[in-house]
């Protein structure tokens, strides 16, 4: 069983919702990313999504675009991000790490070479935002040959046929994008999310995470009522940016740790209220 499957089996047994933070690898520095990953786990993160910087991130809003630019300014590459994961695994062999990024850096490395390097580094899966199932067969074969999971996005615009097509190729979990828009945008409507999740669960057995638009403990708690995982990106990356700009980068792990602890408490209280499911 993969680390991702093991995690969600355990959480299902406990009646808990997973907390999944997203950060961009190398923002503001590779060393801080490593420290931050450990700190996030200590604060209650169940799985970490690690972004690979790409020059043209069409699915990302301004906050994550700027994180990407900060990482790229230091020359952080896909290989560097895998290097961060390798070091993370030296002291943590439990917490799943999923790489999130765009296809071109992988395409340049080669699908098979990427899958091998990712597996060797201790990565558990990948979510490539610009690869829908129609374009993913070569990547799927390479990723699955290494026993890694390929995570897919689902959107408010995904109809039944698309959900079924994604069910055939996805593994680990699926990521429901709760609003039409880029990362960090929009206001999430929990009732709308719930009805869409029902449609997804009727066709996909994997756990369903919900992201885009979760900015604080209150929205995290609302989403925890309906989702198997709460995914938080821009709200974290925005805090990283503010501290980096104020010259207080060394405080990033502590501040983000506190923020995640708040989210953890809010999610757990919701779960304990028995509203999950």
């Amino acid at each position: 069983m993969s680390r991702i499957q093991t995690l969600f089996e355990r959480l299902r047994g406990e009646g808990r919702t997973a907390l999944i933070p997203f950060i961009t690898g190398g923002d503001p520095t590779p060393a801080l990313t490593l420290e931050l990953m450990h700190r996030m786990v200590a604060a209650g993160a169940d799985l970490i999504e690690l972004g690979v910087p790409f020059s043209d991130p069409i699915a990302d809003g301004p906050v994550i675009q700027r994180a990407t630019e900060r990482a790229l300014a230091q020359g952080v590459s896909l290989r560097d991000v895998l290097g961060i994961v390798r070091r993370f695994r030296e002291t943590d062999d439990q917490t799943p790490v999923v790489l999130m990024g765009y296809l071109n850096p992988i395409e340049v490395m080669g699908n098979a070479a990427f899958a091998e390097a990712a597996s060797e580094a201790g990565m558990d899966g990948a979510l490539i935002v610009d690869v829908p199932p129609e374009e993913s067969h070569q990547l799927v074969d390479a990723i699955k040959a290494q026993g890694l999971d390929l995570v897919y996005l689902l959107a408010p615009t995904s109809d039944a046929a698309r959900i079924e097509a994604i069910a055939e190729v996805a593994s680990g979990f699926v990521y429901y994008v709760s609003v039409k828009g880029v990362t960090g945008a929009g206001h999430l409507d929990v009732d709308e999310v719930k009805s869409k999740l029902d449609a997804i669960r009727a066709r996909i057995e994997l756990p369903v995470g919900v992201g885009f638009g979760i900015r604080d403990a209150a929205t995290a708690a609302q989403v925890a009522q309906v989702a198997d995982a709460v995914i938080v990106g821009s709200a974290i990356v925005g805090r990283i940016e503010a501290l980096a700009q104020e010259g207080q980068a060394e405080r990033i792990p502590a501040v983000i740790g506190d923020f995640l602890s708040e989210l953890r408490v809010a999610i757990d209280q919701t779960n304990d209220g028995g509203q999950h499911g």
């Binding site: 829908p132 897919y152 996005l153 615009t157 995904s158 698309r162």
Partner: peptide, 8 residues
């Protein structure tokens, strides 16, 4: 090669 939201 686009995000899922644009496929529909």
């Amino acid at each position: 090669f686009v995000p899922e939201t644009l496929m529909h």
